[in-house]
Nucleic acid binder design. Structure first.
Lengths: 347, 347
DNA sequence: TGTCCCATCCAAAGCGGTTTGAAACCGATT
DNA sequence: AATCGGTTTCAAACCGCTTTGGATGGGACA
């Protein structure tokens, strides 16, 4: 059932039917009702392919997912972001198209989506320091929103981000207040902007208390369980091991916990751990009592907000760059406690 | 730059240019080369919106993601499947459109995607027992592939699935061979087909050795860390606790591990754990030595295979239902060992 | 009664490709 | 020179919708 057939059945022109369905004023209310009723009765749905061609709009938002070789973006965090964004899209009648491409083709993917007219806007994931994609997107000329920020870029752009620096600053201060002075950082990859900011918060807090940073207590790797395990393990095996750890994610934290428990230590007593909790639906930080003390900020909510921002930009491209900073909460769980007294009693 | 402009520049008709670019035989080779060169030079990309309308095909595959209220599908396993499938799509010039909808609208979402012509085929996720979506999809009339199977459905359909029953049968036998007789099952939700099959494998293996099943040793819940923790904890606190556990996923297993370690036990010595490992990119089961003994089958690979199967079906709809059964490997890790001698010597 | 203005509806021209049916061209054959 | 078959090209219709630019008709007003 298409527009023409429906119009014929009603004894009206396609023009009028189209207008009636799309709420244009120049159609008699009784006619509109008749059209609406007939549309429902015949289960008419306008063909999106035709709408897209006719309007020149795609009613779709693109997400490019680079694959594998450089680093892996398809992680649980990404999944939750997508879920949040997708929710917003479908509520607004937009499709979400994911383009999974080998990362050497990433630039082409953005250009292609634009040139072939498959999307009206895009979300940029996992921005790096000086991320070249910001310039690329300006060149491409499609509205876009970055999930995160790209330090070093001087071009304007819209973003939604967590205040990563402040989150890790506060987490570090919290540990310092508990008497910890040897604090290890199990960070994400530090070519990623968020990881740089987190480190800056960590370093800043230490500096403010006059504690000099120790490179042996700072690691940077993928946010996987295994990487967290490895990094934590290395630090714990130092002659002068940390009494507290800061981990980049729930998953890193689980790895760290494995390393801790493997060494017969107990979290919250022998060693304190704070993680950043993205509030993933499948990886909740415990139930009533949080497992980990954590800086928490829902990445799903970030997805929703980024999508809303982007749709607004798509609807009104004259709107200038928008920004939205989310603050992480500091949630106290069972994984932190006062710094243990040194093993060799000092008095 | 569109087709008409390009044709004008070349002094050719749009027809010829279109044919030249699409490899039709009725165009002079020298003309084709001239056209190809010009297309590249002017960076011409055909507008997908127009192609879609003209050909009546969407060049896109749909995935419907029901949201939240019933159960949560947006999990790391899903993410990896999507990554695998997406890879195949883009290699074949197809888009992947995700439709994230409140689950009470799930049926409408399938119908909508078809009626509005946004996709040429769909993948069905997380099939249930007697899943009504199989009938729905037959009604909708688009090619589709199910990731998993739907026990109880008598309609034909294409699927890609892991041999879940056999995997859990073998895992259970492995534990029995190690002398375990009290084996707990930390299963996924048992309205999901894969969970039913796993239980059937587990029950089957016990039965074959004449061990009567104990309802207290069988749990069914979401595959989250917390749920795994809770289920394992409950079993461990029984007067007659299990000496081994079978967990539904890496994440459930991590929860189980937490419960185990919280009780001062050691995995592989005091209690054996086998998990099902979907070989998730962000949640590898250790490095050289696996953390958990596991039944392993890459869900990402399943995504690739399902996508390939679907594209074949889309290209040739007369092709009958296809099926593909994947066997899980049994990987020996550090989490299993012989059943501990009973605490109170019996003889 | 004739005009004018609205409210309402419609024909037709896009959108940017694909595809059908026919025309133009060319060398070969009679 | 006329005919023919094959190759190459093109004009125009079409996909299913939106949107522009009228047309139509009826009531208000002079």
């Amino acid at each position: 059932m298409n527009l023409k057939e429906l119009a014929a059945k009603l004894g009206l022109s396609p023009t009028t039917v189209s207008r009636a369905l799309n709420g244009y004023p120049e159609v008699n209310e009784s006619t509109r009702e008749r059209v609406m009723a007939a549309a429902k009765r015949h289960n008419y749905r306008p063909n999106t392919r035709a709408i897209r061609l006719a309007t020149g709009r795609a009613f779709a938002i693109g997400h490019v997912i680079p694959l594998a070789t450089r680093h892996e973006i398809v992680n649980p965090i990404f999944a939750d972001f997508i879920a949040g964004a997708g929710e917003t899209y479908s509520r607004n009648g937009y499709d979400m198209v994911l383009s999974v491409v080998p990362d050497e083709n990433e630039d082409d993917a953005y250009r292609d989506l634009k040139a072939r007219g498959s999307v009206d806007g895009m979300i940029l994931h996992a921005p790096l320091m000086n991320d070249p994609r910001i310039a690329l997107m300006h060149d491409v000329g499609l509205p876009f929103v970055v999930h995160g920020r790209a330090t070093g870029t001087d071009l304007p752009y819209s973003w939604v981000d967590v205040n990563n620096r402040r989150a890790f600053l506060r987490a570090t201060e919290f540990l310092l207040d508990l008497g910890h002075t040897r604090i290890g950082l199990v960070n994400g990859l530090e070519h990623m902007d968020f990881a740089i900011r987190r480190r800056s918060g960590y370093v800043g807090a230490l500096g403010a208390r006059g504690i000099t940073q120790d490179p042996a207590l700072m690691s940077s790797d993928e946010m996987t369980e295994v990487a967290g395990y490895r990094a934590a393990g290395r630090m714990l095996d130092l002659p002068d091991p940390p009494t507290a750890l800061l981990a980049a994610s729930m998953i890193s934290g689980m790895g760290a916990r494995r390393a801790v428990e493997e060494r017969g230590m107990e979290m919250g007593r022998d060693i304190s751990i704070i993680i950043h909790d993205d509030d993933l639906s499948y990886m909740k930080n415990g139930e009533d009592v949080p497992i980990f003390t954590a800086t928490r900020s829902s990445v799903r909510e970030a997805g929703r907000l980024a999508a809303e921002m982007l749709l607004a930009l798509v609807q009104d491209p004259t709107m200038g760059p928008q920004t939205r900073m989310l603050e992480a909460e500091l949630i106290i769980g069972q994984s932190t406690g006062p710094a243990p007294k040194p093993a060799i009693p000092k008095g």
